[in-house]
């Protein structure tokens, strides 16, 4: 029996094929930007899901920090740390795609690859701070300390997420404000929606694999390789 996340991930891949086909070949080109606007159908889903991933990281960080002594002793709290490691890494990967896509879109439309406008600046800071979370995890070997430290740094790094979202509303920027269905042609909304769910579902599939990897690596570190079940492990060391 494949896991639920694997099934969702496969569904995401299928949706992504449909969404990219629709975005590349079916949806109309923009009246001013022409074909280059089709980048939106991968750029915006990556943006949304980067923020979704980091939001799950925040929930996981809170889950770990607020977990009781018993949940930790019984090893039930580790799922939060595994989730944090998974969603932070996937968010950073999607964030890297986001920046590259944005730069390739910006050069022909805005005229520059990069400019320090509020949106681009806040995205860069957010990305770097979550990279710092991953770097911190690489430096700390003791699992409990690693979980606590990375959870606290995640709380601080998360401040950037609302800043990224509201940057275009709060400050004058070169980047346009968020689109809504009323500002986007219905024929363009469809591939945007399909790919938003496609990237979300693919991310969930990757989360399933990444949490599994995080669990195995922690268990190898704690020398619990004989038992893969979390119920009796974790606090043993």
């Amino acid at each position: 029996m494949p896991r639920k996340t694997t099934i969702i991930g496969i569904l995401g891949i299928l949706l992504y094929i449909v969404g990219c086909y629709d975005g590349l070949l079916v949806a109309p080109a923009d009246r001013f930007m022409g074909d280059i606007q089709r980048i939106m159908y991968v750029h915006v889903p990556c943006a949304w899901n980067t923020l979704v991933c980091f939001t799950i990281s925040l929930v996981a960080a809170l889950g770990w920090l607020l977990s009781g002594a018993r949940a930790r002793a019984e090893g039930r709290a580790w799922k939060w740390d595994e989730l944090l490691e998974a969603t932070t890494e996937i968010g950073v990967v999607l964030g890297a795609f986001l920046v590259v896509q944005g730069m390739l879109w910006a050069k022909p439309t805005w005229g520059v690859y990069w400019t320090w406008d509020p949106r681009l600046t806040t995205v860069a800071v957010m990305e770097l701070m979550f990279v710092a979370v991953l770097a911190l995890r690489g430096f700390v070997d003791e699992p409990v300390r690693r979980a606590t430290w990375s959870a606290v740094v995640t709380l601080v790094a998360y401040v950037n997420v609302p800043l990224v979202y509201f940057s275009v509303k709060w400050w004058a920027s070169l980047h346009q404000v968020q689109s809504s269905p009323s500002t986007v042609d219905p024929a363009m909304v469809l591939p945007l929606r399909i790919n938003a769910f496609a990237v979300l579902f693919m991310s969930i599939g990757l989360m399933g694999l990444r949490t599994q990897l995080a669990r195995r690596q922690r268990q190898a570190l704690l020398g619990e390789s004989d038992s893969d079940s979390t119920a009796s492990s974790g606090g043993a060391a």
Partner: peptide, 18 residues
Amino acid sequence: GVMQGHFDTVLWVYGLTT
């Protein structure tokens, strides 16, 4: 004021993302 072409850039972006 209307952009022409750039479909190759779009394919690059989709290709790199995939």
